[in-house]
């Protein structure tokens, strides 16, 4: 075990733990936001740069500070390392910068986005952003497309976290979508029209931190905060059958995996409880499910905090948005 101090709180962790995971063991404010890292998907992380932290001392052996801010999701702790997250002005300043970058080309269409209320970017902007964006240029735009019968892709909202690409690589045997082009022209796409249709592809929707990938089978228009999430199970040979069924009255609006407070799929004995597409997309009848009870949403989220109605940095739309 090795010792690391994050925002003045000391914790002992196993060797090889990342700063982010060490911070998650402490919990609360010392946890940096993570938009691209996803524990159940090896290989994710390092891209969004929201999880930047300051390393004030590298280790007991070499206590020099690290000159650059480090990505906590992909940097391993060392014995005696001292990390600053919320206590570092530099982190706060630069993270606000990252948020501004991520929002630069984001359509800010929260009022009509299905993800509103459970969008990590919305939360991120609320908690780490500045009042207004200085971005006055024209935004890049894409037409939303249906990729198969189950999933809709609205590329305008995508933050290129690559999580969905990892899902397709790791959970399915035929990846048909990926990152195309490069630079700020990069887009998630199938290139030629292809349906994404595979036993586990629906999990892409859950790992997507924004409303870029949404469930086409969700049955009617509703905002998440009008829905009642219920823990439910079903007998399934392909997947865990452990789901959250989002109810509106007696109707099933949509089915998702169970997620922890960091928006990641729950793991049981180190096994992520992914859902198969049949359970997710085809079981829209409440009789198919055994309801266990209400789901407590303890996620760091505007839904649970009920502050979505407050003035929000995202409402500050620049002029040139049509």
């Amino acid at each position: 075990m090795i010792k690391v101090t994050i925002d003045d709180i000391e914790i002992e962790v196993e060797e090889g733990t990342t700063i982010l995971n060490a911070a998650r063991m402490i919990g609360g404010d010392v946890v940096p936001p993570a938009m691209c890292y996803y524990s159940a998907l090896p290989g994710t992380g390092g891209k969004c740069r929201t999880c930047l932290v300051e390393v004030a001392a590298g280790s007991t052996k070499d206590p020099r500070p690290m000159p650059k801010l480090m990505v906590s999701c992909s940097t391993q702790v060392m014995d005696g390392m001292i990390v600053k997250n919320k206590t570092s002005e530099r982190v706060i300043e630069n993270r606000a910068g990252v948020v501004e970058f991520l929002l630069a080309n984001h359509p800010l269409d929260c009022p009509v986005c299905d993800q509103a209320g459970e969008c990590d970017l919305q939360n991120l902007g609320f908690e780490n952003g500045k009042e207004a964006t200085r971005y006055e240029e024209e935004r890049r735009t894409f037409e939303p497309i249906d990729i198969g019968d189950h999933i809709k892709l609205n590329m305008n909202r995508c933050i290129l976290c690559y999580r969905c690409v990892h899902v397709a690589n790791q959970l399915t045997d035929q990846r048909v979508h990926g990152a195309l082009h490069r630079g700020d022209h990069t887009e998630i796409s199938t290139y030629i029209e292809k349906a994404i249709d595979n036993d586990f592809s629906g999990n892409m929707i859950d790992v997507c931190p924004v409303g870029a990938l949404t469930d086409r089978t969700a049955r009617f228009k509703s905002r998440v905060w009008f829905l009642n999430p219920m823990n439910a199970t079903c007998e399934c040979t392909k997947c865990s059958g452990k789901a959250v069924v989002w109810m509106f009255g007696k109707e099933v609006y949509k089915v998702t995996t169970r997620q922890d407070k960091y928006g990641e799929v729950e793991q049981v004995d180190g096994k992520p409880q992914w859902l198969c597409d049949e359970c997710r997309f085809d079981k829209k009848d409440v009789s198919k499910w055994t309801i266990e009870g209400a789901r407590h949403i303890d996620r760091h989220s505007v839904i649970s905090q009920g502050h979505y109605e407050k003035p929000n940095p995202l409402d500050n739309k620049p002029k040139n948005i049509k």
Partner: peptide, 20 residues
């Protein structure tokens, strides 16, 4: 901006913004 690989957000968005 043209040559950014586009993987990480500060470079992808920042270089395009500076260009504009």
């Amino acid at each position: 901006s043209h040559e950014s690989c586009g993987q990480c957000s500060p470079c992808r968005e920042g270089t395009a913004w500076m260009e504009k």
